Computed example of a mutant assay.
Amino acid sequence: MMKSSQVRGIIFDMDNTLLRSSINFQIMKEQVADYLIEHDLLPVGFAIQEHTTSTMIAYVKAKGMPEESYTEVMKMVVQHELIGMEGAGLEPDVSELLDVLMKSYVLVIVTNNSYKAAVHALETTGIHPYFDLIIGREQMEAMKPSPSGYLAAKQHFPQILESEWISIGDSWIDGRASIDAGIPFISYGPNGHLMKEKGITPIANIDSLLKLLDYV
C-alpha cells in the first residue's frame, strides 16, 4: 500500500464517488453527439464510444464551435443533470468518511456538473457543510479531463504544498485531470480496466470509501 507521507488536502469527484446520481451519461452523450453531427460539428463515424460528453465537447470547441451551438449543447447537459440529480443519494459510508476527514483536512469537490446543480445536490443530501470549496464547470477553464479544476483548487489553498494533495474519483477523466495537475489519484469503484485502457495509473483502487483512510 502506498501511503502519502502527509496529506492536507483531498479533492473528490462528485457523481458516483460521493453521490449516487441517476444521470444517464450514455443517453446524454448520444443526444449531444447527434446534435453535433447534425450541425456538421462532428464528422459522421466519429468514435463516440471512446469519448465522454465533456471530451467530445472539448474536441469540437478546439475545432471552433459556434457560441450558439455551445449554448444549445450545454442546455441539453443541464437538463440531464437536473433530472439525474433528483433524488440523488449518497454512496455507501460517505457521511462516516466525511465526519472523520473534516477534522483534519481541506476537502474540495471538482465536478463537471454546473456549480448550481452541484450545490443543490450536496445541500439536498446534507453533505454541503463538509466542503471548503466546490468547483463546478463554470469555475474551470475546461471540463475534466482538463486539469484546470484541480489546478484552481491548488491555487485557492496556497498554504497546502504541491505534495500534500490527493484526489479520488470513479472515472478515467478524474484520473487524467488529477494526474495532469500533479495530484496522486485514487480510483474508486469498478472502472479500473478503463483507467488502464486510458493509460492512467492510480496509486490505489478502492471498492469502499472508508478505505481512503488508509491513504491519508
Rank of each mutant, 00 (worst) to 15 (best):
V32H: 02
E38Q: 14
I10D: 10
V32L: 13
P43T: 11
I10H: 05
D34C: 07
L42T: 13
D34E: 15
A33T: 11
S5E: 12
T17F: 02
M14G: 00
I11Y: 04
D34G: 08
V7E: 03
S21R: 04
D34K: 14
I11E: 01
I11V: 15
F12V: 07
E38M: 06
Q26V: 15
V32K: 03
V44M: 00
Y35S: 07
I23P: 02
K29N: 09
D13V: 02
S22Q: 14
T17S: 10
E38W: 01
R20C: 09
N16Y: 06
I27S: 14
Y35K: 03
R20Q: 12
M28D: 03
L18C: 01
L19Q: 08
L19K: 01
S21I: 10
D34S: 14
T17I: 07
M14F: 05
F25L: 06
R20T: 13
I37F: 01
I37L: 03
V32A: 15
H39E: 09
D13Q: 08
P43N: 10
I11D: 01
P43L: 06
L36R: 07
R20Y: 03
V44E: 11
R20M: 12
Q26N: 13
I11C: 09
V44H: 07
D15C: 11
Q6I: 11
I27K: 14
L19C: 00
G9A: 15
M28T: 06
L42E: 05
E30R: 14
L19I: 03
K29F: 04
E38T: 12
L36Y: 09
S22W: 02
S22M: 10
F25V: 06
L36K: 07
Q26K: 15
F12R: 08
T17V: 05
K29L: 13
N16T: 01
Q6D: 08
H39G: 01
I10V: 15
E38L: 03
L36F: 13
D34R: 13
F12K: 04
L42M: 09
K29I: 00
V7R: 01
V7H: 02
K29M: 07
D40W: 00
G9S: 14
R8V: 00
D15I: 12
S22I: 07
M14W: 00
S21Y: 00
L18Y: 02
S21M: 09
E30Y: 12
M28G: 02
Q26M: 10
P43Y: 06
H39W: 04
E30T: 10
F25R: 01
S5F: 00
L36E: 04
D13S: 04
I27R: 14
R8N: 13
G9N: 11
T17N: 09
L18W: 02
L18V: 05
F12W: 06
I11M: 06
M28S: 08
S21P: 00
